[in-house]
Nucleic acid binder design. Structure first.
Lengths: 100, 100
DNA sequence: GTTTATATATCGGACACCCAACATTAGACC
DNA sequence: GGTCTAATGTTGGGTGTCCGATATATAAAC
């Protein structure tokens, strides 16, 4: 094994973050993740994730343009993102120095 | 479900980060994680993790004081941490604003 | 309306992550 | 040496995360 730290497990957090900035569709989120991570999550990853978030009231469909189904955060989703962000900062507060 | 984003999957990354700053033992790492996350990883979590990292040459035992077995990063571990940190920053570059 | 392309959705399974419980080791103290 | 305590180590299993393959829906092009 040449690498560790594959950084799984933050997909829902990243999705909430992206949707908090602007409404996005599954495809748009996949594209954004490709830019950031280098690899595009499969459709079998992103749509179940969106479905789960919607079913639990964190996000909701806001518009449909063409085939694109865009989501945005609900109040509950905003609260969850806030909570998760606090947690994130508590864990990684010393990452600050890495951003430059 | 009231929360999502449980932020699993970053344990090895966090461990490498901690060990890059100073040698630490399993117990010391558990304590530090309790401070940051609020919950202490179980011994069945931390020791297999350290074992895996050691077996793959990312960390090595550096000293033994009392029962404490302290580890530090190897060259390979430093390289992996650097790679993972780049990845992390690429994904979360826009978290910058959250640190204040 | 048929074909084509693209976005969305579902399903099964592989693997990773972590915990709880239990077992072992090593030093401290007598 | 014997006992106690704390750190380390091991095992089994539950759950989460993600992928690849497959299926469906939608709109555009013709």
């Amino acid at each position: 094994m040449e690498t560790c730290c594959d950084m799984r497990g933050f997909l829902t957090f990243i999705v909430l973050r992206l949707l908090s900035k602007k409404p996005m569709s599954g495809e748009e989120i996949r594209e954004e993740l490709k830019k950031r991570k280098g690899s595009k999550p499969s459709s079998g990853t992103i749509y179940p994730c969106l479905k789960m978030l919607a079913e639990n009231g964190f996000i909701e469909e806001i518009s449909r343009s063409g085939k694109l189904k865009r989501y945005t955060l609900t109040k509950k989703g905003q609260a969850e993102l806030k909570r998760a962000t606090r947690q994130f900062v508590r864990i990684f507060y010393d990452m600050k120095e890495e951003y430059r």
